[in-house]
Amino acid sequence: MMEQTAKNILDSKQNDVIVEISHLKKTFGSNEVLKDINIKINKGENLVVLGKSGSGKSVLIKCLVGLINPDEGKMIALEKNISELKIDELNSIRKKIGFLFQSGALYDSMTVRENLLFPLRDLKEISKEEKIKLVEEALKNVGLEDTIDKMPSELSGGMRKRLGLARTLILKPEIMLYDEPTTGLDPITSKEISELILEVQKKYNTSSIIITHDMACAKITANRMIVLKEGVIDAEGTFDELEKSEDKWIRSFFE
């Protein structure tokens, strides 16, 4: 039986551009983090972004959800120019873009159930019973049904990441942004999270940007990869192409 990979999943999808970033620039003080970034992501595609710490990978995805305002450039997601949206329009687009934070970013003062109910609180068209059903389903998808009444502090690192993913997926987003999803996890849990990302791509047909340093995660999840260096895209290709790159610096990520 053929092993499931991101490439196999993508082969069956159409090639509609769902995210288009052009000439993106961002400077913090005198530090020019992003100089001229141009990226296109097709529907159902997983794009892995590699780069040294501080190379602006997280800034890139934070710009895409409007957490950071870029200095210049255009970011089109789901046919809307993100930087030109008013806050109400931006909020409705944000509901279609899932963001998994490095730490999981679970609300400490809420139980697992309340954490998952939080993104649904504004949806008046869904009844309370339906919301609870959605919560149970989301927990089942990540294998955490037994934790529903626990507090986030009672969960392990891997469980917090999976719960963060469940909270993000509860709104069934069309685009997923993962900020170092496997950082700080053991190899087994990292593989579980990577496979979950792949499962999400398959089940919900999401397009994703995955920021990672974990090459095992990149190998499982990437359809395409880009490498950021000094604020620009230094290289682009599939996992295999970049692994065999003639550039020693790029190859050093794979060693």
């Binding site: 934070k62 959800v65 409007g66 957490l67 806050i87 909020n91 409705s92 944000r94 509901k95 873009i97 963001f99 934070f101 490095q102 730490s103 970013a105 679970l106 609300y107 400490d108 939080f118 993104p119 609180r121 504004d122 909270r167 709104l171």
Partner: peptide
């Protein structure tokens, strides 16, 4: 602490003010 652990950002990206 909510700011450090990105909980405020998480609220913002989920469409909550």
């Amino acid at each position: 602490s909510m700011k450090v652990t990105e909980q405020i950002d998480a609220m913002e990206v989920s469409g909550t003010n």
